[in-house]
Amino acid sequence: MSLFVQSLVLGVLLGGLYALLAAGLTLYFGVMRVVMIAHSAFLILAAYLAWVFTRETGLDPLLSMVGTVPLFFVVGVAIQRLLMARLRPATLTMMSVLLTFSIALVIEGMLGWLFTGTQRRVRLPYGGADFEAAGANVAVVKLIAFVLAALSLLALYLLLTRTRFGQALRATIQHPEAARLVGIDTDRTAGYGFGIGLATAAIGGTALALDSTIYPSLHWHWIGPLMAIIVVGGLGSIPGAAIAAMILGIGQALLQIPLNTTWAQTIFYVALFVTLMVRPQGFFGGRLAQRF
């Protein structure tokens, strides 16, 4: 029983991080119909930046977010305005995949080149700390990562629902032409949407650096599950992505009891396959997802 509770808690903590990252990934799809393969590469890049920051300054890796979040936002806007906007609309979906894929390769190659393939880990004074809660053992770093992800998701939710910019962004996602007609600068809004998506990768990467070992090719282990999550949740739907992330994260953690870690990860791919067979537009997706 305690093993079950333990796995459940771990699953919720992991699901939170998945939810934040999948929200970013589905946001790109929403604003530009782009599958951003490089999302997880930026995630690992942010983790490396946090690691370098801690190694050089000795400060807490969380502080590196002060620099990485704005930086990633700007990079995201630049990627949208300078690269994605140049692609032909007719072949945008396919070509943008290839373009972001090439960005991912460049990031992975650069990380491997600069820091070698050695596994890295941030050393933290509270790295080994944990506490008991409801019969489960919770590592402090995992809790910090979860809280960080939850707060960012909440901020994203408030930004999208309560602000004028959020309204403009959602209008751009729902119907770009109509959004232009009511006076929204959809190009600029899409650029900012991309920036926000990449900023989630910066936050997620810092959270990841707290409690995992990182290495350059790690991003392939993240992009598969994240892409599966956004398809299950319905492409372009942020609540869908968050719900699917939570369910699949918990599912993965629970499956680790009877199976080993590797086989438990296949739950994402099984869910992806089943979703496409049964309900190709995803379980929470709207009209948008049906066409892709």
Partner: peptide, 15 residues
């Protein structure tokens, strides 16, 4: 469905 899912499945399958 169209392109996006195809690409996602193609990568997921190799992983």
């Amino acid at each position: 469905v169209r392109g996006a899912s195809f690409v996602i499945v193609s990568i997921a399958f190799v992983l």
